[in-house]
Design a protein around this nucleic acid. Structure first.
Lengths: 131, 131, 131, 131
DNA sequence: GTGGTCTAGACCACG
DNA sequence: GTGGTCTAGACCACC
């Protein structure tokens, strides 16, 4: 499993790693007790600073998404899938709310908002996805 | 005309000022050749440093949104309303696209996306607004 | 005699007034002992602050280009035409030198410099002028 | 790479830094993806305030001349060389035009203009330079 | 009164 | 180590 990182762009690298690990867990690509890629491996693969990967894993560990297996690396915790899934949907809802709040602050009418979003939704692919 | 600033939060103060000036121009609250509030006035009103306001105004000036009337202050430029309006709608479209792209990256199905957005849209007020 | 002022642009208004008075003197449009337009008249005509005109006249007076005629206004001094003419040509030479120095600092080759200037010179009008 | 700054003089320090970075890019001294000297380094070297350097770099970034490599510094963008080169020659042409327009406003005859410029051109060095 | 520039020094996020 | 933001306070030119 490898991450896709956008070094430019506003999202910090460590944040992208966190999100991608969570996405892998939420979609079942990573199951409880599965090992996640090692810090050294990821850092080398993505040509980024190992500290950055370590920070992402440290944060994941702090919130209980992964746990250390002494000398063997980091594994996905039992409660991670459930947590990632709810977290993910809540985060999306928050993003939607923030988008609409921002639109209202900019004095867009509900009609305009609905029209713009509707047009964007039409462009959505119809491939098979999860949840 | 006064600005409403959220000093905590991730958006820089100068960025908030920029956006609010543009919003005022886009909605017609500020017309071409109108003077905008002076640096010192705003700084005092919002209890922030004049440099922060000056920075916002400097950026607006470099974009051509406002122009200096030397010794007298800064005025809204002729092209500003048109520019702010198109910029605003484009920015909103980008936000929508970014939201959907993020949702797809998180493997949400189009059905889920539409459902969540649909629910959020229902909560929109129906008051009279601009555009 | 009226001045043509560019309120936007980098040159201060008082500076523009100074230059135009001097140009009028250098070209003979204003002769020694001729009165120059009054502060009030100019300020009204150009819709600018009388203080600005007063400052220009004060500077001109300081350097001896004009002199006050108690209660009657300001007149062109005897030595003004000579002074303005030499000053004008020297100022032009300085501008040329500054232009070339800047071009060299930007690593333009003498060939490029000559070519660009040559092309600009071709566009010069051939009307009858002074000096 | 170091900058040469004239702290007195009318040109703002941050403006001088901007111009020198652009000149280095235009002449190929800085290539795309090259890192530019860090804010702190430059500030120390020139004995000026880091904020002043940061301001110059911020402007360059907004123009797209440089881009941030988060946590690592600022690099020259891909489009920068092309942009700087055309910008530089256009700027020079504008300066020439402005000089001639000013000369005409001062009622210099084309002959005088050509003579003064011709004399200045003779003093140009003949060393090998770029473009 | 206006904006523009600069200094000094602090704090933060990121790698 | 890097840049980004903000504060505090000074000085300047211009109107």
């Amino acid at each position: 499993m490898y991450y896709r990182i956008d070094v430019s762009g506003p999202v910090p690298i460590y944040e992208q790693i966190i999100q991608q690990v969570k996405a892998a867990i939420a979609t079942g690509a990573l199951l409880p007790d599965d090992p996640i890629p090692s810090v050294r491996e990821v850092a080398k693969e993505l040509a980024i600073n190992p500290n950055t990967v370590a920070r992402a894993y440290r944060d994941l560990q702090k919130e209980g998404t992964i746990y250390p297996n002494r000398g063997l690396g980091l594994n996905v915790s039992q409660e991670a899938p459930e947590k990632c899934r709810t977290e993910r949907i809540e985060s999306f809802q928050e993003n939607v709310d923030r988008l609409l709040a921002d639109a209202l602050r900019n004095r867009f009418s509900p009609e305009t908002i609905k029209r713009v979003i509707g047009e964007a939704l039409k462009k959505l692919p119809t491939e098979v996805t999860v949840s």
